[in-house]
Amino acid sequence: MVMEFLKKYPYDENIPRRTLWIMKPFVVVSKLFVKAVIHRDVAILYPYEDLWMPDNYRGRPGLRFEKCISCGICVRMCPTSCIELVEVLDDAGNTVKRPQINLGRCAFCGYCAEYCPVDAMTVTPEKELAEYTREDLIYGPRRLACDKINKNMEVHLEETLMSDIKNGNSERRVNAFMTDRPILDSSKCISCKKCEKVCPVKAIKMIEHGVNAKGRPILWPEINKDICVCCHNCVDDCPKSALHMDEVL
């Protein structure tokens, strides 16, 4: 291997005393000068014209209102905790929960888009976000909508299982929403029905398993593994830690 630069300019104890050194920068700069005269300006007149942006540009987060299932994964994954779920009216007039983003705190990391199980959260190409007040930087669920979302902005969580690579099935792509499901340790369950209430997709049903010593029914959650999106809400909210997530690796 040749070190191009060190070969051309070897370390010389004597400082170069080239007589014409002062002309060399002029020659180099004049190339740019000629270029600028013949071609158009190098600078971009920003408000009137815009830089070209690639399809996968990561601007502010966007939301597709009707796709969202209010699972709260974006709230959990947000590293700056700028997302919170707020209650809004949907098109049919029902009260639903949708993410609201404080862009003053947003780090533009794209985690909310990456970890959304239904691709409701996306990144958008919007980057001109200046506002006059801090309150204006809080984007409600309706304001988060963006019509410039293209297909490349949907970041999918495409992971490969370690077991798949061992089995030679390395082309299969999975993600946690497809594989991981909560598992119940029934000895800890106190039949509080909390998991049933917090499940965003109604995948949990309380099934009666006999009667306890006081004569009250024992209810254990049964999880419909086809609907579950692995949002961790039931695991997090369980007061007795009876549920835990079974991670497929």
């Binding site: 630069f5 051309k8 400082i15 005393r17 080239r18 050194w21 060399k24 920068p25 180099v28």
Partner: peptide, 19 residues
């Protein structure tokens, strides 16, 4: 190699400041 380095390494002013 052609532009940026030429401005610095061929000019004794900048080299003598660093050497």
């Amino acid at each position: 190699m052609d532009d940026i380095v030429t401005l610095i390494d061929d000019s004794s002013v900048f080299v003598s400041r660093m050497k």
